[in-house]
Design a binder for these strands. Structure first.
Lengths: 126, 126
DNA sequence: TCTAGTTACTTGCAATAAGCAAGTGATAAT
DNA sequence: ATTATCACTTGCTTATTGCAAGTAACTAGA
């Protein structure tokens, strides 16, 4: 029987961040929420084409890590909207830096909506 | 015969960034270089304990993506030091934001050396 | 009422990637 | 000659990803 292994690789704040969001999809979902998307099908319709089982898995993980929360928008059948928590909204500066970095070195990438750069984490929690 | 598929999921600058560095290890290596590490064994000795085959693979990928470059430090046998390029050094603000985020929400993480926050990308290219 | 459609998932399975241990080649040190 | 070091590579097992199909709970239309 294997003892519960440490849930993180080291106490370094960078590696701990990557333990939570160091994959190809988590921040894509956070980006969508920053842009106002709320529903499962909104995330599915993004141009990256996230597989549905991975979307369900990532929504679960992000909720477990306190980055998003869900609230029912109807009862029959029970369905949820997904929102960023304060912790999730505070990832906005990370996204903004990543976007600036790509824009500096990859001329073929899209220009995000201007609002993306002027928005603050607090704005997302309105 | 399958036509060469697009190397990225969408032209979104965020998803393109994650296509390059969206995994658990790449930014850990970039972090080490920001802290002055240069050698293969330096990266191996980091507290996260990166497996050696993954380290070799990531060094190759990061070089292919123009984020790091290598320069020989001896001839017999041929051995390399690894350095950040300008593109790699410009990831520093991303790392800084990720570290700030973890520090805000995870009280149990380590405090990075003070220099980590005051350093700029240009400093890393000295 | 029967049928088709929508939404938000879950399940099964093949392909890919990660992680661990051991091995290799070049050279230096004893 | 033997041992050690450094920077990898190889083989193998396990875990994760990605695709396709299926399901539950409704809603709208013929």
């Amino acid at each position: 029987m294997k003892t519960a292994t440490q849930p993180y690789r080291s106490p370094c704040p960078l590696s701990k961040a990557l333990d939570l969001i160091g994959d190809k999809w988590s921040l894509v979902i956070v980006r969508d929420m920053c842009l106002g998307k709320k529903r499962y099908c909104d995330f599915q319709n993004s141009p990256e084409g996230i597989p549905t089982n991975i979307l369900a898995n990532r929504l679960r993980q992000l909720e477990e890590h306190g980055i998003i929360k869900k609230q029912p928008y109807q009862e029959k059948p029970l369905r949820y909207d997904y929102f960023l928590t304060a912790k999730g909204a505070d990832l906005l500066p990370v996204l903004q830096q990543l976007v600036c970095w790509t824009q500096k070195y990859d001329p073929d990438c899209w220009m995000p909506p201007a609002a993306f750069f002027t928005t603050t984490a607090e704005d997302l929690l309105g």
